[in-house]
Every structure is written in structure tokens, then in C-alpha cells.
Design a protein around this nucleic acid. Structure first.
Lengths: 215, 215, 215, 215
DNA sequence: GATGAATGAGGGTTCATTCAT
DNA sequence: TATGAATGAACCCTCATTCAT
């Protein structure tokens, strides 16, 4: 809904029409980014909207112009982050290449787009706060987890048909494919200070276990 | 109400000696149990000591007779729960049986003693709150994780020497052995409502991946 | 409700510029006044911020917008009250009039500006709570007591040079000049119910002792 | 009420009859001493009975065997300390010696028995807490202040009759005689850290003002 | 009497949310 | 639309007092 007043020359200090909406969207994004910082660092309950506002460079009240309340801000944040990645995963599954290659691409996407970004923190938040926010758990089961499971299961089934994989274990439990992802995320949040874990090597080792070491 | 059992003349009107201490210990345990309930359900920040007290059947002030403050109660709770299990894990590693058998025992211990009990919730709490409580993370790295890693690594190394395992992947990344454990715990907290996950089957499938399906 | 005064076009719909800051200052003052009431009546520890807020006509949380905590409110209150009077005392000392006249002016200032006002209560608070608030004691020694002592000592020295006073006792112990002030304050707080003490007469009698009765 | 059980040989572990009462009295005194320490240091409201008990070497409950509640302990403490001294003051007034000599004795008693002892702290407590404890103020007006005022007034009147003092100022305001006492007490509590005040010299200087310097 | 564990009312402080400007 | 001062409910913690032992 672009601002329709085509000619309002008498309000000079305001930027071009449309700029208003753009500014609003920028503010909204700034708030979401700041919120991710604070929620990651302190958890939902301990994060203070004061700090979110300050970090976003807006006033506290402004948050309420964009989000109904603290929980809505949190849910919005959590919902908007991971969904796009599932599309990537599904797309990769459709490509006609050896499964091992595809899975390696998936791993790369994960390492680069999740582990190397703030999305990692979102996953941590889902794990930590999900039990208290049933809608979040449900949303992610529906929009992320079940779709990812389905995509993986399809990929594994095709791998068997192609003779790249023996046994239906990974069809029955596609979760086993991504289990080390969770290990990596949790480890990095808790224990990296004491002993760092090379995620890419870990994932590659895992693939070697699943598909056999490449000759 | 004078003690009516006529034939206990040598025992003074008060209960057995040590009953006082016993009662104190019982109260302490009741508080810890109640605290686990509340912290699991609400998280550290949102749990109310009022509720802990009520659930434990004591007054609010009583908590402070046993724990310095809310955080001390939380840390105590977290610290006392998992350590005993590591001993079990280390002990199992010393038994002279086929590795697959030992690992199956470990899985059974995990399923029965962790997944089937409140310890599962403690692990969830560590994952969720650990980043905010560096002492907890450090304690668990030192007392649980690093010991478990070491024990597993030893077990895997021996398996290779015995020819039960080919490749040193699991020696380099023993975390891969337990990765599905985390999947199971997280899944059960978030998604069991939508799709249940049979932990025992999952773990068995995982072992089949690692050691080959038993013929 | 658009501002109906047709002929004030240049003033925006909100009150005078600075009205916001003025209101904030007024609130701060209201809190300080209320705090003096409550602290005087109950002492620091027993005064309730709830009561301070109510008396000031603000919400409890508002106090924390102006003062870091209860102690800061207390210290601020104590610090801001007496310092201005020392300036008066020092100024009087510079006037070229007979010492007895100057001291009588000082006494008048004391009776009117301290004894007749809430400042009396502040002095009582310093006496009562000072030992527990070293910063307050130090501040008042530095900003009030030592300056007053110095001013009085100068005055007494000049009186000797002028032949209005014999002996250097009051130069060595200027405290003796103001001793009855403390008697008056303490008496009025404790014993006025039983036997009232006419402060002005007391002080005049004291001056007669020091300087001889005016003939 | 001496313990009347003259013959109770069958309770051997207990000390001689009467020793019980003596021990009780000792405990009571220990509590009062400890209470003075704590009340002096923290004030009535902030002093903790826990600390009093610990300092007295008794259990918290024991305090309640000797005093109805915290306030009763406080009042008892305050009441029992100063009264004996008034007797001394009245006695000194009856001796037939030069007034200056008598007043010097009074000053010595004050310096040695009040200023050099914990009684100084009791006076401070009366000043600080008296306004909140009307019974304490009343008690001290009746039993201490008015009697001391009367005794001093008699002494001053006799001094005039004897020609040792000219003018009736000190008869009208005997408070002026003791004013420096309060200065000394308050000063020592607040400002001694910064500038010490020699009480004996101060008092002697004061007497020189009142009675003229001894030739 | 003596103990000290247990109680629970009370109060300082925080912070999500509102609303006048 | 944006602000941030103001609100007041909520919660941790303390400590005077009680009472079973």
C-alpha cells in the first residue's frame, strides 16, 4: 500500500512518498535484529525490551507499533528465520547428481548459512524456549522439520534405489542424517571455550560414516 | 500426643537420633525435586520460587535455609544429576565384551536412566540455560562431557584394535556416537506431540549404522 | 481537543517548551519532599518507598526514574539541603559590623532557616543515620562542618583583634559557639512534648555568656 | 525469687541450685551487651536478632525467653544504662565544695563513665531512635533529663548565692552547661575520622567560658 | 530452659506495557 | 508516527517470630 498522495508539495521536510513505508520496514528489521541479539544472549524471559530498543536505535514504545507484545516479537523473529532454508533443501533434493554430492552441498549450506550466521542462535532459541511456546514448536514442526524430514527421506530413498546406500535405516530415521548438526550447535554454545569443534570436519566424518569414505 | 508404643522405653520422646538431619535432607530433596519441575517447565528466569516452595510443601523462606539463592538452587540441581552416570559409562568401558554389546548396554542405560527419568529434563536445561551460566557449562564439560568423550574414545580405539570397527572416525569424533541422543531429547521436548520418535529403535538403528547390522 | 486559544499560532499544541523538563523537576522535588517526610518520621531503614511514592503522588516505579535506589534518594536528599546555608554563614562573616551583631544575625538565620523549617529534620537525620552512611558524614564534614568551623574561627579571631572578645577559647573550639544549636534540635525532637524550649531565648542567653550581656 | 528446691540430689549434671538463675542472668546480660553492639552499629531497624544471638553466644530463640520482642530488648537496653549516672550527678551536687570543682568532677565522670564507655553509644541511640520510640523519650525525660536539669539548676543557683557565678543565665538554661557534651558525642560518631576532638580539653574550655579561667 | 529450623509477611527493585505529547 | 515518562504487578530475598524437639 504505497502512499497515494501524489502531490503534497507543502510538506517539505518529509522524504519522498514511499520512503515512509521504507523507513518503517527498516525500523522493523532493526528491531528484529536487535531482538535476536538480546534474546540469544539472555533468553526470552531475561531479555529486556529496553535493551532491544536501545540496540535498534528506537524508543521503547516504537516496538509496540510493530509488534503486539514481547512474545509476538519473539515469535515473529523465530518464525521468519529458518523457513527460507527449507526451500533450499527441497530444491537441492531435486537436482540429479550423486547423493553424496547433494548431501555435501546441504552440509555446505548448513555450515555457511546456519552455522556461520545468526540462524544458529535461532535454532538454539527454539531448542531452549520451544517447550514454553507451543506455537513455535508447532510452526517449526509444520514448516521446517516435517518438510526437511520429508525431503531427506526422499533423498535417501532415491539413494537406495540408485544403489548408493544399502539398508533403509536412513529412510526410517532421516533424523540420523542431521543429528551431528545439533551436536555442533549445542557444542558451540556451551563448550567451544574449552575445546573447539571443527564443524566442517565433523560433518564430513559423519558423511563418511553414512556413505562410506570416498575412494 | 505422647508416643503410644509402650515398649520402646529407651528411646526418648523424640524420634531416632539423626531424624532431624534426615528430615532436613528430605526437605532439601523435596525442594530440589520441585525445583526441577518448575525450572523444566518454565526455564530458570520464569520459574517462581513461590511455586517451588509450594510444590515442595515448604514455606518460601525454607528454600533459603538450604540454598543461598535462586541461582545456587539451580546450579546445585544441575550439578548433582548427571555426574553419577558418567561413572557408569566409564565402568562399562572396562568390561571385556564385544564393543557392540557394551555400546548397547550404554544405550540401555541412557534410555532407562536418562530418557525415562527427569534427567532428560536436566539435559534440556543445560542446553537451554547453559549459555547464561558459564559455571554450569564449565562444570559439565569438566565432569561429564570430557570424561564421557574420553571413555567413548577409549572404547572406540579398542574396537578398532579388535577389528570390530574400521576407520578412526569415531575416535576422532566420539561425539558422533551420542549425537542421536541429543536428537531424541530435543525431539521429545518439542515434537513428540506431532510425531513420536521411538528412542530405542532410533538408537538401535544408529548402532547399526556405526557397527553394521548384526547378522 | 485542539488548543482553542485562537491567537497563539506560534506555540505548538503542546505546553510551553520545557514544560516536560519542568514537570520532571517538579516530580523529583515532590519525591524529595515526600522522602524527607518519611525518612524523618521513620528513619532510613523503616521508611517505605511505597509510602514515599504515595505521598509524592507518583507510582513506586517513578522514584527509580529519578534515583538509583533508596540509598541514593536518601543521600541526595541529605546532600542538597544544608550546603546553601554555609554560603550564608560565610557571607555574614565578611560584613563589617560588631561581632555580636553578626553572630546574632547568624542565630536568626539558624532559627528562621533551619529550626523553623524541614532542615532541622535533615540535621536530625544526619545525626541519626550518619554513622551508617560514611559518605554522608564525609560530605558534610567537607562541605558544611569544616567550612562553618573555619568561618566561625575567622569571626572569633577578628573579634579578639577588635577587643570584642577576650581569650582564645572560641578560636580553639568554635564548636562551643554552635553547641546549643544541637541541644535545641535534639531537645525539640525528643522532649518538647514535656517541656518546651524557647530556642531564640536559649541562643540569646548563650550569646550573653560568650560576649557578655549587652548593657 | 530464689530457686526454692532445696534438695534435688537426683539431678546431678546440673550445677548447684541458684547457679541456674545466675546463668540465666549472665545470659541476659550477654544478650544486652550484644544488642548494644548491634543496635549501635546498625540502628534499631537494621540490627538483626540473628547477629545479636550469635554475638551473645546463644540461640535466636533464647532472646525471646528474656525479652518479649525486639523492641522490648531495645527499650530495656536503653532504659537500664543511664539512670545510675543521674544518681551520681545528684550526689555530687550535695557536696560542699566550690562549684567549679564540682562541675569539674561532673565533667570527669562524664568523660570517664560515658564518653569512655558504651554509654556514649546509648546516648547516640536515644538521639537517633528516640523520635520513633515515645516511651523511650518519655522515660529519659522523666528519669534522666529532668532530674539532671534540676540538679544542675540547683547547683547553679547555689553558685550564684555563693558569688561564684554572676547572672542567672545558667539557672534559666542549665542545658547550656551540658551542650558541649552533645557536640562531643555527635562529633565523635561522625567526624572523628577527619578531625579528632579532644573531649577533655573541649569541656575544660567550656568551663572556663562559664566560670572564667582559673587564675 | 534452650535450640534453631521453619514460617510468611513485607519491601526494594525490575520491567512489560500504556499513553500524553 | 515516534517518543519515553509513568505505571504497577510481580518476584526475590530478609528477618522477626514461633514452636517442635
Amino acid at each position: 500500500m504505497p502512499n497515494p498522495q501524489g502531490n503534497q508539495p507543502l510538506i517539505p521536510p518529509r522524504p519522498r512518498p514511499g520512503a515512509r513505508a521504507a523507513k518503517a520496514a527498516a525500523r522493523r528489521d532493526a528491531i528484529l535484529t536487535a531482538a535476536l541479539d538480546e534474546f540469544s544472549a539472555k533468553g526470552f524471559a531475561s531479555a529486556r525490551l529496553d535493551d532491544v530498543a536501545q540496540r535498534a536505535g528506537v524508543a521503547k514504545g516504537t516496538i509496540y507499533l510493530h509488534f503486539r507484545d514481547k512474545e509476538a516479537l519473539f515469535q515473529e523473529l523465530i518464525r521468519s528465520t529458518l523457513v527460507p532454508l527449507v526451500g533450499r533443501l527441497e530444491t537441492i533434493g531435486e537436482i540429479d547428481l550423486p547423493t553424496r554430492t547433494l548431501v555435501e552441498r546441504i552440509v555446505d549450506v548448513f555450515v555457511d548459512e546456519v552455522f556461520g550466521t545468526r540462524r544458529k542462535d535461532v535454532i538454539r532459541l527454539i531448542i531452549a524456549e520451544g517447550p514454553r511456546f507451543p506455537q513455535i514448536a508447532e510452526f517449526h514442526y509444520r514448516e521446517v522439520v516435517s518438510r526437511a524430514i520429508t525431503a531427506l527421506r526422499g533423498l535417501m530413498r532415491r539413494a537406495i534405489e540408485r544403489g548408493e546406500l544399502s539398508g533403509d535405516i536412513l529412510v526410517r530415521f532421516p533424523q540420523l542424517v542431521v543429528a551431528p548438526v545439533l551436536v555442533a550447535i549445542i557444542w558451540s554454545g556451551l563448550f567451544d571455550r574449552f575445546e573447539s569443534l571443527d564443524v566442517r570436519s565433523l560433518m564430513r566424518a559423519h558423511l563418511d560414516l553414512l556413505f562410506g569414505e570416498p575412494s
